[in-house]
Design a protein around this nucleic acid. Sequence first.
DNA 1: GAAAGTTTGTAAATTGATTAAACAAACAAA
DNA 2: TTTGTTTGTTTAATCAATTTACAAACTTTC
Lengths: 390, 390
Amino acid sequence: MKQTGDLHLMKRINKSIVMELIRHESPISRASIAEKTGLTKATVSSLVSELIESRLVDEIGAGESRGGRKPMLLLFNRTAGYAIGVDLGVTYITAVMTDLNGEIVNEVKIQHDNPPRDELIAELTRCIRELAERVPESAYGVVGIGIGIPGFADEEGNVLFAPNLGWEHVPLQRMLEDEFGIPVVIDNEANAGAVGEKEFGAGTRWPSLVYVSISAGIGTGIIIKEELYRGMSGFSGEIGHVSIQHDGKPCRCGNAGCWELYASEKALLDEAKEVYGQPRMKVDQLIRLAEEGDAKALALFDRLGRYLGIGIVNIINAFNPPAIIIGGRLAQAEAWLKQPLLEVVERRSLPYPRAQLEVQFSELGVRSTVLGACSFAISKFFSSTKVSVE
Amino acid sequence: MKQTGDLHLMKRINKSIVMELIRHESPISRASIAEKTGLTKATVSSLVSELIESRLVDEIGAGESRGGRKPMLLLFNRTAGYAIGVDLGVTYITAVMTDLNGEIVNEVKIQHDNPPRDELIAELTRCIRELAERVPESAYGVVGIGIGIPGFADEEGNVLFAPNLGWEHVPLQRMLEDEFGIPVVIDNEANAGAVGEKEFGAGTRWPSLVYVSISAGIGTGIIIKEELYRGMSGFSGEIGHVSIQHDGKPCRCGNAGCWELYASEKALLDEAKEVYGQPRMKVDQLIRLAEEGDAKALALFDRLGRYLGIGIVNIINAFNPPAIIIGGRLAQAEAWLKQPLLEVVERRSLPYPRAQLEVQFSELGVRSTVLGACSFAISKFFSSTKVSVE
DNA sequence: GAAAGTTTGTAAATTGATTAAACAAACAAA
DNA sequence: TTTGTTTGTTTAATCAATTTACAAACTTTC
C-alpha cells in the first residue's frame, strides 16, 4: 500500500527539501532557505541544527549583510562520506571513489580478459577493497557502492543477463553487500552513463534527457523528470535494436536493419576493413588517420555520423526529449561526427520537437559510467531522507 | 519550489489514499481500510466521516460478520458528480457525459466539415452545453470537461498546433473555462485514448503501456507508472514518424520512410486504389470485402498487419512496455491484422522485452478518446485531494 | 553618531492531525 | 451463558509545524 502521512513523514519531507537545497545551492543561509521553501524560519532552524549534528552540513561563517544582521552561511559537507562507483566493462574494470559531490578522490583501473564469473567477481572485489581501504577519515566513511554493468539488472540488483560477460542470473548486489556490509546498487552501464552526465556532466541543465552510448553496440539511458526510466522488470529500452531499415541486414537479435548495425564501433570497423583491406583496425587508429586528413577515414566518420543522425531523429520523434547526450567510446570522434549528424537531424526531424532540442556530446568521456555509478550510491544514501511530493 | 510538509498536506495525503481505496475497492469497511492502509481505525473513521459529509461516499448497510461485529460497508458515490468528455475529430465531434466511474449516461455526436475555427468552437460549445443541461441532479453537478484534440496542446490547455484542423495557438482551455466556469483539460487524442484504455478498457491491468492509435495517421500515447508521459513542452512522442526505412519514401515531415507511410489508413487506401483501380475506397468497404473472403482485401490487411508489426517491434525494443494497446479506426480490422502482426512481433523483437509483453486490441473502440477525456476531468476533480508520496 | 528600519535567527505558545490505549456494541462459537 | 473477536468511537498523548514575539546584528538616514 502507498505510504501514508504522519508526522514522521512530514519531517522527512521537509528535511529532505532542506538538505537538497543545501546540497545544490550552498553556501546558503537559514533565512534564504526559509524564503525559498516556504517553511518558517523556526522550522528551518530546527532542521538545520539536526543536519549540522549529523555532520552533513557545516556553518562557515557570516556572509554579506543585505541591510540587516549578517546571515550565517551553511555549506554542504561533501566530505562527510564517500561513494565508490565501478564501470564493469567487458575487458576492463574502472573504479573510482568520490566525495558526496561526485568529486573524484581516488581511482583504480585494471584490464581483464573476461575470466570465469567468480574470478571476475574476485577482481571486482579487489578493486573495490583497494579503494575502500584508502577512504579518508570522515563521518560516514564509504556510504555505498554503485556498479554499471554491460547488461540488464533487476531492482534487487540481480544481473539478469549480460551477454558479453556470459553472465545470467547473478545476485551481484547481495554478494557485494554480504562482502562489504554497505548498500550496493547495480544498473546497466548506459543508465549509469545517463545519470553521470545528468548529475555531473553535459546534462545538468535538463530535467529529462536521452543518453546514447556508442561503443561496440549502442546503449541508451532515458531520464524523465529527474528519474531514470526503467522498462518493465528492469529492462530499459534497447534503442540500438530499433530498425532503421525494415528489410535491411539481419541482426542476431532477430530483427533486421537494426540501428546499431549501421552506427556502432563494430559497424565502423567492419566498414574500415572493407575500405582499407586491413583486418584488425582500431578506432584510435582511424581517429589518427582522420586527424592527418586521410580522406577514407574522414568519409567513414562522415557516413557514421549520418547513420547516427538517422537513429537520433527517431529518438527525437519518438521521445521528444529536451536534450540528447552522446557518449561512449566513439564520442571522442565528435570533431568528425557532429557536423553530419546535426545536418541529418536538422533536415529530417519534426520541426516541433526539434525546436528546443539540444544535441550534446559527453562531457565526462570515459568516466560517465563510473560517475553515474557513484551517483547511484550517493542517491541511495540520501534517499533515506529523500521524499518527493507533488 | 517543492511542496513542503505540514499538517494540511498530511491530511490531504491520507484522505486521498482513503478516497482512492473506496473508489476502487468499494464496498469496503472502515476496519478494512485501516488494515490495508496502515492508518489507525480512529484516523480512518475521522476521514471517512468527512468524505461522507462531502457526499463522495455513502454507507450502504452492514456486511457479513467475520466472527464479530458486522462491518458497515462504504460505497463510492459515483453519481456525486458527472464529467463531460469530448473527442474533437477532423470530421466529427463526439461528446459524452459519464458518472465519476466513467459510466456513460448521455452522448452527443455530430458531423462537421471542418468549418473556420470560431464556428467549430461554437459547435463544440453547443455539444457540451447540450450535455451539461441534461446533467442529473447531484451533489457536484458537472465537475469538469476533458477534450481530446487531433494535435498538440501545452500544459495550460493551449492548442499549439493541430494541422488537420488548421489551428495554431488557440487558448481553448481558457475559452471553455470562461464559457462554462468549470475546469477544462485539453490533450492530444492519442493521449486521451491511452488514458481511456488504461482506466476503463484493455489496459487496466498494467501500470505502464503504449497505446497506438491507427487512423488516418498513427498517434501514440505513453503511460509510465500510472502517469501520462508528455515530452518537453507538451509535445509527446510522434512514433508514427519514426523511420522504418531510412532511404524510403519521403514524408512531408522531412524524414523518409516514416512508419505511418506504411501502416496507416492512408497507406491502406493508397494501396487499395492501386490494387482495385478504384479511386475512393473506404475502410468499411475493405472490411466488408475481407469478410466475404476477397483475396485482394485479405492480402492488403495482411500486408498492413506486417508493417504494423515492424513498428511495434521498434516500440517494444525502445520502450520495453509491459503492454501495447492498438486502437483507432483500423483496430476494427483486428480479425485480419492480429495474426500477421503478432507473427512479426514474435519473430523480430528482442526475447527479453518480449517475454512478458502483451499486445492487445482496444476494448473501447471508437470511445477510447472520449472516455479518456472524461478521465482527465475526473482526475482533475479528485486531484484537489490526490497526493502521492513514494 | 544617534535613531530608525531591516534582516537573521531563536524561543515560547498554539494548532491540529495522527497514534495509542481504552472501551462499548455487536456478533459467532463453544 | 460464557468467551473471544471484530468493528468503530472516544479520550489522552504526541509531535512537528505555525504563529507570534523578540533579541541580536547590521545598514541607512538624518
